[in-house]
Design a protein around this nucleic acid. Sequence first.
DNA 1: TTCCTTGCTGACCGGTTGGTCATTAATTAT
DNA 2: ATAATTAATGACCAACCGGTCAGCAAGGAA
Lengths: 202, 202
Amino acid sequence: MKTPRYRRRKEDRPKEIVAAAFAEFAEHGYAATKVEDVAARAGVSKGLTYLYFKTKEDLFRAVIRNVVGERLDALIDVVEQEQLSGEAFLRGPMLDFMKRVPDSPIPVVIQLLLAEGGRHPDLVKYYFDNIVAKGLQAIRRFVARGVARGEFRVTAVNELPQLFLAPVVLAMIWRLLFPERTLDTDKLMEAQLEMILAWIKV
Amino acid sequence: MKTPRYRRRKEDRPKEIVAAAFAEFAEHGYAATKVEDVAARAGVSKGLTYLYFKTKEDLFRAVIRNVVGERLDALIDVVEQEQLSGEAFLRGPMLDFMKRVPDSPIPVVIQLLLAEGGRHPDLVKYYFDNIVAKGLQAIRRFVARGVARGEFRVTAVNELPQLFLAPVVLAMIWRLLFPERTLDTDKLMEAQLEMILAWIKV
DNA sequence: TTCCTTGCTGACCGGTTGGTCATTAATTAT
DNA sequence: ATAATTAATGACCAACCGGTCAGCAAGGAA
């Protein structure tokens, strides 16, 4: 009984290579990552990588597009259902979501786009449209609905949904830059939400 | 009258090269920047760059260290003078400072450190100690002093001076990632400060 | 004017790595 | 079994770029 030296797995190879590339890019950054290392991590030869992805840049694009926001979509569903009061939504699902972001793949994508985005405006646009704009729009609608319901006052928050994201962004950058310096990111999110709530509640 | 092909300017060359390197790094990132392009931008030959900086990495370090926080020191001086009330300080010098950061060289440094920081832990530490920690400590003392004076309540802000920086960080990242998408960063800072003020005022 | 010091140049080298392709072998069809 | 197909390999190439260095010329000294 001899085991074959490799198995043909046309279906799974691409996603495995993308996953390996994500890990390598996250560790060393795009430029410093060698295609051969990606291949090695995926348990594959360098040549095979080039069978599924024309260039290293192609692979980069695949990595970015692969990390999509399923969690964001789930959150938007919750807010659109209008079951919860504004306050309950913020203290519940919204807070949970915000707490989870720093540990998700999103920070890595931000990091990669910051480093390489200049040469990939289409990728930046893709991310802006599918993640950032979508999220901001949902928050905007949420705040407006709260006002319509008589739960919230009209404040600067109506035009600046970024106020909700500010601590999330800080938490992401902090973790990326200073992974060893502890920062209670959960408490940060909670404090920001409490402040906003106190500010906008009627 | 023949003009010499070059002039000897031992004194000025280093800072000119560092300035050119900063510009190139900001445009293309560290890895994608060729030393030859830096030299060209500084109006100098590649060889000369290596006369003043042993390696490309050395040049990188010089660039990072060169961008120091004089403005931050000035701000800290103001807060330490204790002339202004807590509220007046926040609405005046603090707000001005926050508004200026996104247009300063700091975002570029953040960008570079995010991309290359992993391989330069000493530079990250340098920046943390000299900019981040210093700033946070100053804010922490400021809030504590407000409490001692009876101006502020004790809140989560006492332990989380990062709440002041959150919109600044978001503004920086936004500008770096989406330079063409307008965001009223001034209004963002103002709103955050108003919220914090309303939250902590006695 | 001549000589000396040294800031500065630019041709060159060698290691690294993105990308290719002839070959091999796992799988399927006959 | 055997042939046909194609997933997968890995040796190889060529360009690119960080870093070197022998020599040139600017500026000062005598």
